[in-house]
């Protein structure tokens, strides 16, 4: 057993996380350790509890029991500190359709309490390749462009940890490819990244480690280098059906 308070190598440290909604157990004891700078992909079928786990890590909801430390902050008592160092990308855009790209990102930058906002906002929009559309309404964007702007929203405050909840949903082939390139960029900036997905074709190549979540429990956890991509499908299926 390691003592969590001295364990700053780990950006995400969850022990026996449980989350119950009414009579439904969404998470039934999830323990998870993710090292600083690691790219962890969590696979799982729909309803496995992936979104719930992301919500817990993002402090959008509190666990029913278990302990959780994010970037060495306690998820119960230091919620606001955690919020400043995480970014979340989901399949929902979390953007305002009737604002321009610039106004959107600026709004969130203001809520993060950033300084020198206009510069930072321009930089980050440029970074995701939307400079030419900066002052257009988000309503006029394609799904792929919206997803890129979502990345800008999630990294405007330079978070240490990125949480990605099914980020590929709704992207076409081209969009998915661009998004994949952006992910590997983000990874190279030594961020800790946790991604969830139900599609085993996504993310395996980028990952340092992969896990499988089924019915609220992590049933498989291994370094990505130990996995033969061609066998992964069978591995996944046997894990999902075995539990």
């Amino acid at each position: 057993m390691t003592n969590s308070s001295t364990n700053s190598d780990f950006d995400i440290l969850a022990e026996e996380l449980k989350k119950t909604y009414g009579n439904f157990d969404a998470l039934r004891g999830v323990s998870l350790k993710i090292k600083r700078g690691e790219f962890f992909t969590l696979f799982g079928p729909n309803g496995a509890g992936k979104t719930t786990l992301i919500k817990l890590l993002a402090t959008l909801t509190a666990p029913t029991s278990g302990s959780l430390r994010v970037f060495d902050y306690d998820a119960k008592s230091e919620v606001q500190s955690i919020r400043t160092i995480i970014g979340v990308i989901s399949h929902d855009t979390y953007l305002y359709e009737n604002l321009t790209a610039f106004e959107n990102i600026k709004f969130f930058a203001e809520l993060y309490g950033l300084l020198n906002i206009d510069n930072r906002v321009s930089t980050v929009i440029e970074q995701v390749g939307l400079k030419s559309r900066m002052h257009d309404l988000v309503r006029t964007f394609s799904r792929g462009m919206k997803q890129r702007l979502t990345v800008a929203r999630a990294i405007v405050h330079e978070p240490k940890i990125l949480l990605l909840d099914e980020p590929y949903t709704g992207l076409d082939l081209n969009g998915a490819q661009i998004f994949g390139e952006m992910l590997s960029d983000l990874k190279s900036q030594s961020r800790t990244i946790l991604m969830t997905t139900h599609n085993i074709d996504e993310g395996l190549g980028l990952s340092d480690r992969v896990g499988i979540l089924v019915k609220g429990k992590i049933v498989f956890d291994s370094p990505a280098s130990d996995i033969n991509p061609s066998n992964f499908k069978d591995l996944y299926i046997s894990n999902v059906e075995g539990s």
Binding site: D92, E97, F108
Partner: peptide
């Protein structure tokens, strides 16, 4: 309007009381 694109979630993610 806040629910469109679930923008309210984006707000809740920020360290805003």
């Amino acid at each position: 309007l806040e629910k469109e694109g679930n923008a309210i979630m984006g707000m809740l993610l920020t360290p805003t009381d």
